[in-house]
Simulated scan of single mutants.
Amino acid sequence: MVNITALLSTLITSNHILHYHNVLDAMGHVSVRNPNTNTTFFIALQLGPAVLSGREDIGEYNIADGSPLTGTVGGYAERYIHSEILKRYPDVNAVVHSHAEDVLPYTVLNVDVEPVYHMAGFLGGTVPNFDIEDTYFEDDPRDLLVNNPRLGAALAQTFGVNETQPTGPAHTTVLQRGHGFVTIAQTVEEVTDFAYYAASNARVQTNALLLKAAMGGGGNVKCLTQQERKDAANMNRWIAFKPWRQWVKEVERSGMYINELGTPPLDS
């Protein structure tokens, strides 16, 4: 049995880390599968990530349909992003949804997100862009929110199927047109790493494109090769705890955040 207090402490700190590094605004969220039931997941209630501080700030919901367990009142309308991904992919245990402004331009331009340095190899060969307009029913409000199981299932399907591991996704990250991005992983620490470096890679790619334009269009933006992406992705997964330890210390020493459940585990 997994220590749920330690798991929720990790979830709280992930929210703090991603807020501290401008990956999550007041609306972003992180979730984690309950490993002791495998049928529910934890996510903050309707709170900004910076003010999440204790057990009472976290809801528990059924993966099957996103419905709250007894005792959970309210929560994010977009929790169906999380429930539908966790339902579709048994190998995924943690999800981040972000509106990071570094990534947003790539959701509305015909410019692919590409891994341009080694810490972003997990982005893989392609990063799909989910356009919710393609999924709307005629009477749906066009607010770009994934706020029901049908829309959540359509977004989850965009992650595809891993050819060598049918219970896993083909992609770790999916853009959302005019909205943000979602990234998924096996642990909270790993998904925090992926979300941070997805935004970081977008900044590097944007700067490279701007520099290219300033040079009159000369020079190439050389992205990682397919083999480099594969090998760097393997590296990304085993090294995730190195930045995690540093990020935990940063948010604790910043004085900006409260984690009533204590310092999360610093080792895998």
Rank of each mutant, 00 (worst) to 15 (best):
A77E: 09
Y80P: 03
E84I: 11
L86D: 08
Y89N: 03
D91I: 09
N93E: 12
A94M: 09
H97E: 10
S98I: 02
H99C: 08
A100Q: 05
E101N: 14
V103P: 10
L104D: 02
P105R: 13
Y106D: 09
V108P: 03
L109W: 04
N110Q: 13
N110D: 15
P115W: 10
Y117V: 02
M119Q: 14
A120I: 06
A120P: 06
F122K: 09
T126G: 00
V127H: 04
P128W: 00
N129Y: 01
F130S: 07
F130A: 07
I132E: 03
Y136H: 00
Y136G: 00
L144D: 08
V146R: 03
V146M: 12
V146N: 03
V146L: 08
N148V: 06
N148W: 06
R150L: 01
A153Q: 15
A154W: 01
A154K: 11
A156M: 03
Q157I: 07
T158H: 05
T158M: 14
F159Y: 05
N162G: 00
P166A: 12
G168C: 11
P169I: 07
A170F: 00
H171W: 05
T173Q: 07
T173W: 04
V174Y: 09
Q176H: 10
G178Y: 13
H179E: 11
G180H: 03
F181N: 03
F181G: 01
T183Y: 04
T183V: 13
A185P: 02
T187F: 08
E189C: 11
V191C: 13
V191M: 08
T192I: 06
A195G: 06
Y196E: 12
A198M: 10
A199Q: 11
A199F: 13
A202V: 06
A202D: 08
R203E: 14
V204N: 00
Q205S: 03
N207Q: 12
L210G: 03
L210M: 14
L210T: 04
L211S: 13
K212L: 07
A213R: 14
A214R: 11
